[in-house]
Design a protein around this nucleic acid. Structure first.
Lengths: 218, 218
DNA sequence: CCCTGTGAACTAATTCACAGCG
DNA sequence: CGCTGTGAATTAGTTCACAGGG
C-alpha cells in the first residue's frame, strides 16, 4: 500500500528553473510595495503564461487565495524554502582566470542568495592573491578550505582540459551540484547534477536564428 | 496546393542547441584524425542518445551513410552551414564592466566562430580604452560602429536597469538575436530572438538539487 | 551485416477549460 | 465575482523498433 516513500511526483527541471524568475519578479514587486500579486501579473512580468505559473506553484503546494491572488511575502518565502535558499547554500569557483575572477566580482556586486565563498586555481603564481575579498587557494587545499568555508556547489571556470579532473575531485569531496562554464561534456555519476553554460555554444546556436524569418522562431 | 513556401517543418530549439555540441565533438575527433563517426560514438561523447542525434540531423537532411556512419569533415561543414557559421556572423558586447570585459578576453582566447567585434559602454570614463584589441565605444556611436564593423548579434552585460533600453536600441538598428546576461526579462517584439544567461538564476535553481536525493534528479 | 533514417509509440510539458472557494 | 487550482486535452519532444541501403 505504501507509495514511493515521501517522494511525491516528479517535478520537471524546466519548472524548477522558472522558480527563481518568479522570485526575482516577486522581490521587485515587494520592494515596490505590492502586497498581493495575481498569476496574470506575474505572467506579464515574466513572459510565462499564467496557467504555467499556477501549475508550477501547485507542484509544491497551494500558496494562493482563490479570487484574490498570492501574497507577495508569503510566496517569496515559499519559493525560497522550496529552492533551499532559506538554508545557507554557498558556492566555490574553480579557475581564477578572466572568467572566474569576473564572476566573483560580478556576483559580489549584487544581491545574492548563493554567495561565492572560495576561489581556487592551479597556478602557484596566483595562489594567495586576493579577488574581491577571496584569497585564491590551491586546488590541493580543497579539503581544508571546505572545512573552513563549507560550500555545496562548484562553479567551474577552468580550461577545458582541466574540467573533467577538477569535477571529479570536487565530486569526490561530496559536491553534488556543478555549474560548468568549461566547453566540455562532463562525465560524472548521475548522482551529480550538472548545468552547463557555454558562451561559444550559445553564440553558435543563436547564429541559427540570425538569418531566419520570424515565422521560423521556435 | 502550395504548402507554406519553403518553410519546411518546424525545428525544435532544443535540437538547434544540440548542434553546436555535436560540432565541438566532431571537430575534436577530426583534429585527432577520425574520418568516420557513428551516432553511437557521438552519443558516448555528448551524452545525448544516438537516436536523438540521428533525428536531430535528419531535421536538416540525410548526411550519413547506412552501414557506415558520418564523415566527420562532411558533417562538420553541414552543421556549420545549418547554423550559418559558414557566413560571417559577428557579435558586439554592450557593457564594459567586469563581465563584459571578461567575456571579450575569455572569448578572444579560444577558437571562435562568432567573434566579438565591438564593445560599448555608457560611461565616458571608459570610452576609448582598449580591451583585448577592442576600443570601447559610446552606445550613441552604435550606427557608426555598425557601419565600420558590422555585427548581427548583441551580447548584453549592462546593469539590469539599462538592459531594456539598450536592447530596444540595438533592435531598432536591426539586431534580431540577443544574448542577455542582465537579470531582467526583456520585452521585445517576437521577431527578436533572445537567450538569457543569468548567473544568479542558475545558482538559485541549482540550489534545489543540492539537498535532493539522486532519485529526484530530473 | 551494420548503422542510418524514420514512422509509430510513448513520455513530458503546456494549454485549455472549468470547478472550487474565498 | 474573481482568481486559484487542477484534471483533461493538446502539443512537443524523445525513444522504440525496424525498414532501407551501402
Amino acid at each position: 500500500m505504501a507509495e514511493r516513500q515521501g517522494a511525491g511526483d516528479h517535478i520537471p527541471d524546466v519548472a524548477v528553473r522558472r522558480l527563481p524568475v518568479y522570485l526575482r519578479v516577486l522581490e521587485k514587486l515587494y520592494r515596490e510595495g505590492t502586497a498581493i500579486v495575481s498569476s496574470a501579473e506575474l505572467s506579464r512580468l515574466t513572459g510565462f503564461s499564467s496557467e504555467q505559473i499556477r501549475k508550477d506553484l501547485t507542484y509544491f503546494g497551494a500558496f494562493g487565495t482563490r479570487g484574490v491572488g498570492y501574497s507577495a511575502v508569503a510566496l517569496i518565502s515559499q519559493i525560497r524554502r522550496i529552492l533551499g535558499l532559506d538554508q545557507s547554500i554557498r558556492a566555490a569557483v574553480f579557475g581564477a582566470g578572466n572568467l572566474g575572477q569576473a564572476l566573483v566580482r560580478y556576483h559580489a556586486g549584487k544581491p545574492q542568495d548563493v554567495p561565492m565563498v572560495a576561489l581556487f586555481d592551479r597556478d602557484p603564481e596566483k595562489i594567495g592573491r586576493d579577488v574581491h575579498g577571496l584569497t585564491i587557494a590551491a586546488i590541493d587545499d580543497l579539503p581544508e578550505v571546505l572545512r573552513r568555508a563549507p560550500f555545496q556547489m562548484a562553479i567551474l571556470t577552468v580550461p577545458a582540459e582541466a574540467a573533467q579532473e577538477v569535477a571529479e575531485r570536487v565530486v569526490a569531496h561530496g559536491i553534488r551540484a556543478i555549474l560548468n562554464f568549461a566547453p566540455v561534456t562532463l562525465r560524472l555519476p548521475d548522482t551529480v547534477f550538472v548545468r552547463n553554460v557555454d558562451l561559444s555554444l550559445e553564440l553558435q546556436s543563436l547564429a541559427y536564428y540570425v538569418n531566419r524569418r520570424p515565422e521560423d522562431a521556435p
